[in-house]
Simulated scan of single mutants.
Amino acid sequence: MLVTPAYAQAAGGGAGAAMQFLPLILIFAIMYFLMIRPQQKKLKEHKNMVSALKRGDQVVTQGGLIGKVTKVKDNNELEVELSEGVKVRVVQTTIAQVLNKTEPANN
């Protein structure tokens, strides 16, 4: 019998292969709950905030400009008045925060 010890040890390693993937699965699960899921939630909240913008809301852009929404356009644009007579066109998704929401007028 000329069987070397290396061949004799290699025969019984079936359960070890599944155990090698367990740490990778755990790392992915932790990354999902700590990084991916909160980012998706934040993105969904921002999308809802932007879609609820209306005329008269005071907003802050990502560039740090504070202004009042004067017009909401259909093509993903807003017209924001920065000061009296100074109006700029802004893409809706660049709104970082809504400072003051306007209440609907009761007519």
Results as ranks from 00 to 15, higher is better:
residue 1 M to Y: 08
residue 1 M to E: 13
residue 3 V to G: 00
residue 8 A to P: 00
residue 9 Q to D: 12
residue 9 Q to C: 02
residue 9 Q to R: 12
residue 10 A to N: 04
residue 12 G to S: 13
residue 15 A to W: 06
residue 15 A to V: 11
residue 17 A to W: 06
residue 18 A to M: 10
residue 18 A to Q: 09
residue 20 Q to G: 11
residue 20 Q to C: 07
residue 21 F to V: 13
residue 21 F to Y: 11
residue 21 F to K: 13
residue 24 L to H: 13
residue 24 L to G: 15
residue 25 I to S: 14
residue 27 I to N: 05
residue 27 I to E: 12
residue 31 M to T: 14
residue 32 Y to W: 13
residue 33 F to M: 01
residue 33 F to V: 04
residue 33 F to T: 02
residue 33 F to N: 01
residue 33 F to A: 02
residue 34 L to A: 11
residue 35 M to E: 04
residue 36 I to Q: 02
residue 36 I to G: 02
residue 37 R to Q: 11
residue 37 R to V: 09
residue 37 R to F: 11
residue 37 R to G: 00
residue 38 P to Q: 03
residue 39 Q to K: 11
residue 42 K to D: 03
residue 44 K to L: 12
residue 44 K to C: 01
residue 44 K to N: 08
residue 45 E to A: 13
residue 47 K to L: 12
residue 47 K to P: 00
residue 49 M to K: 06
residue 49 M to G: 04
residue 51 S to I: 01
residue 51 S to R: 07
residue 51 S to E: 09
residue 53 L to E: 04
residue 54 K to I: 04
residue 55 R to Q: 08
residue 55 R to F: 01
residue 55 R to A: 04
residue 56 G to Q: 04
residue 57 D to S: 02
residue 58 Q to G: 00
residue 60 V to A: 09
residue 61 T to Y: 00
residue 62 Q to A: 06
residue 63 G to W: 06
residue 64 G to D: 14
residue 64 G to P: 09
residue 65 L to S: 15
residue 68 K to R: 09
residue 70 T to W: 11
residue 70 T to H: 12
residue 70 T to G: 14
residue 71 K to D: 14
residue 72 V to D: 00
residue 73 K to V: 06
residue 73 K to Q: 11
residue 75 N to T: 15
residue 75 N to Y: 15
residue 77 E to C: 09
residue 78 L to T: 03
residue 78 L to W: 02
residue 79 E to K: 15
residue 79 E to H: 10
residue 80 V to R: 02
residue 82 L to E: 03
residue 83 S to W: 03
residue 84 E to S: 06
residue 84 E to N: 05
residue 85 G to Y: 02
residue 86 V to S: 08
residue 86 V to P: 00
residue 86 V to Q: 07
residue 87 K to F: 10
residue 88 V to S: 04
residue 88 V to L: 09
residue 89 R to Y: 07
residue 89 R to K: 13
residue 89 R to F: 14
residue 93 T to R: 09
residue 95 I to H: 08
residue 96 A to F: 07
residue 97 Q to W: 01
residue 97 Q to K: 07
residue 99 L to Y: 05
residue 101 K to V: 10
residue 101 K to W: 11
residue 102 T to E: 10
residue 105 A to L: 12
residue 106 N to P: 03
residue 107 N to K: 13
residue 107 N to R: 09
